[in-house]
Amino acid sequence: MPDISDLLKAGAGDPLAPPDLDRAVRRGAQRTRNRLVAQAAVGSSVVVVAAVAGLSLAGGGTSKAQVGPGSGLGQTRLLPDDSLPTSGPSADPRLQPVAAADPSQLPDGFNFVLVRSVQPDGSLVVDKVTRTTDVTAQGKCAQAQDGSYSPADVFSFCWSNQNAKLRTVPLASGVTTVPFQPDGGPREDLSRDDLGRLLTSGNDLLKTEVYVVAVSHNTVESIALAGNV
């Protein structure tokens, strides 16, 4: 009879490459710096904006694209760009086009974009954009700078953290009105529970993919699929 340990050792293979200690130390140090910066800049969006630069996407590499005008009422899309990756999940044209008709509507930083449906031409109908106001989550955004967290990790944290607040930002005219803004004001904080109710309240189309869009100076820097809601 084979020994289970021997069997597992055979299945694990032989990791020949030695650990890259220098790289591990660099990543650890960078992460600590980011956390300290985030803690020092409580309430400041500077941290999140800084995290945009050099963002590494999970599975798709960093993508950059120019934002073009919307293709119609409530429809938003990204125009193709030569710098988009040519392979990986992000290379799928049906996964790329997520943005706002008017990029100035997207605040700098990480935006959680809830996508309602996919159009035949590949553009996505966006319901709304949220951003986190939670300090720890902002720290995680900052840590995404060196690839230590992916946008999906950031979103998972915000989604699972009872204390995380997501701030809703209205999109261009024609986009579905977001509840919890009774006065139609430009912004309102949503708790996780509020957002959960919003996403499950009577409209199955709202229960769909969530993307993280990083914006800097009104330019969409990167897009990543964060997960399903």
């Binding site: 990791p15 990543r27 650890g28 992460r31 230590s148």
Partner: peptide, 10 residues
């Protein structure tokens, strides 16, 4: 594994 070691370094 590299990531886990990075956390250990941190």
């Amino acid at each position: 594994a590299q990531e886990a070691l990075a956390r250990a370094c941190q």
